[in-house]
Design a protein around this nucleic acid. Structure first.
Length: 405
DNA sequence: ATGTTC
């Protein structure tokens, strides 16, 4: 399998799994900027869905030693996917999927802004299961974080645990090649993760000024290992990643319940759930060194490890198994990758075109979701072909219901 | 992506 190598003057190379999936010059420059930093271990890896993003390129894998770039992790800390296979078969689903969609929409707070003015996509009263998860796994550590960083206090935190959010966050009902029914969802650490991200991005920028460090891009501001801010960030980011994982777990429980209520029968989960981040940083070992591995829009793909690569609304999604490709730092893409921005998509694609492209899916087809239309994304088949040495496809899923945030 | 807001 061919990869593209971009050599960077006074920096490490960029190794890019983008043969057959061209990407824009802006993203290329961002990758070069990253590769020019003095603390990158070996090289920067770019996945086939790579595209321009704030801070660092979406679809990049960044191994660092002695520093972390908070803006490379971004503000949607721990954003990722969860999927389960159920014992339900396609022919057991009702002819009209409208009721299933509305049951899912009722079971899981979603959306924001005008849709719910007082409590945008949040719990009004905290359900018991949510309260328990919070108390058992998140509450104490959050108190510690707030003591050191009071700016984290006035956030929605527990009120957002088990809620979907907005934008490209979604819940889907899909069918695999044997017509077995899956539930798949995409969400992150919501408002509180966002606050953590923004806070430490600001601190990193301040640190750069304090030490007179010049960078090709202020969004590459970093925290230095050993400093208090670094230690606090590692704690906070780890907490937000747990919040995101639990968030998806809570929603999955509720989605399965909504499916059971709709079918008026118990629903059994047939295979172990896959729950993977695609926007995160953690300690990993690569090429004889312990490094901080930032995956911004990339999924871990160690040998045998299962991951989820969603296509766009109306396209197919994939359950994949990692091949443990060392050169990619054991990673793969996190989706199809955008070819146009949200604003551009809304300008270029009509509501009618969007409705046509998603005709086979029970989903919203109004102007507000046109930015998620399939033609705003790269061709998922080309993206999968470009990473055939990173993952193998275990299941190909097609959506039948999609709830957008 | 989020929260707030014009």
């Amino acid at each position: 399998m061919a990869i593209e190598v971009i050599n960077v003057e006074k920096g490490v190379p960029v190794k890019s799994w983008t043969v057959g999936v061209p990407f824009e010059d802006g993203a290329r420059q961002q990758l070069k900027n990253l590769a020019s930093l003095p603390f990158i271990h070996k090289w920067v890896a770019a996945m086939p869905d790579v595209h321009f993003g704030k801070g660092a390129t979406i679809g990049s894998v960044i191994p660092t030693t002695g520093a972390i770039i908070p803006a490379a992790v971004g503000v949607d800390i721990g954003c990722g996917m969860m999927a389960v296979k159920t014992d339900v078969r396609a022919d057991q689903l009702p002819d009209s999927l409208k009721e299933l969609r509305s049951n899912l929409e009722r079971a899981i707070p979603h959306g924001g802004g005008k849709a719910r003015k007082r409590d945008p996509g949040a719990w009004h009263d905290i359900p018991e299961d949510v309260g328990q998860f919070w108390q058992q796994q998140l509450a104490d550590r959050f108190t510690v974080l707030c003591d050191k960083h009071p700016v984290l206090k006035n956030t929605n935190n527990v009120k957002h645990l088990g809620t979907l959010g907005t934008g490209n966050h979604f819940i889907e009902v899909c069918l695999d090649e044997q017509d077995d029914v899956w539930i798949m969802l995409h969400s992150g650490s919501r408002g509180v993760g966002n606050r953590i991200g923004e806070h430490f991005i600001r601190l990193a920028k301040q640190e750069m000024e304090r030490f007179f460090i010049q960078l090709p891009d202020r969004d590459l501001s970093y925290l230095v290992e050993g400093t208090d801010y670094f230690n606090d960030y590692v704690e906070a980011v780890d907490w937000a990643q747990d919040f995101a994982r639990i968030n998806r777990q809570v929603m999955m429980g509720r989605a399965l319940k909504a499916l059971a209520v709709t079918l008026n029968k118990p629903v059994i989960v047939e295979r172990e759930a896959v729950n993977c981040h695609h926007n995160y940083v953690q300690k990993e070992h690569h090429y004889d060194k312990n490094v901080w591995l930032t995956r911004k829009g990339a999924v871990s793909a160690r040998e045998g490890q299962l991951g989820i690569i969603p296509g766009s609304m109306g396209a197919r999604s994939f359950i994949v198994r990692g091949k443990g490709n060392a050169e990619s730092f054991c990673s793969c893409s996190h989706g199809a990758g955008r070819v146009m921005s949200r604003t551009q998509a809304k300008k270029v694609v009509s509501v009618e075109e969007h409705a046509l492209a998603t005709a086979h899916v029970e989903c919203r087809k109004d102007a507000a979701v046109v930015d998620e239309t399939p033609s705003a994304y790269k061709n998922i088949d080309a993206v999968m072909a470009a990473q055939s040495d990173l993952v193998e496809v275990v299941h190909t899923l097609r959506q039948v219901v999609c709830v957008k945030g």
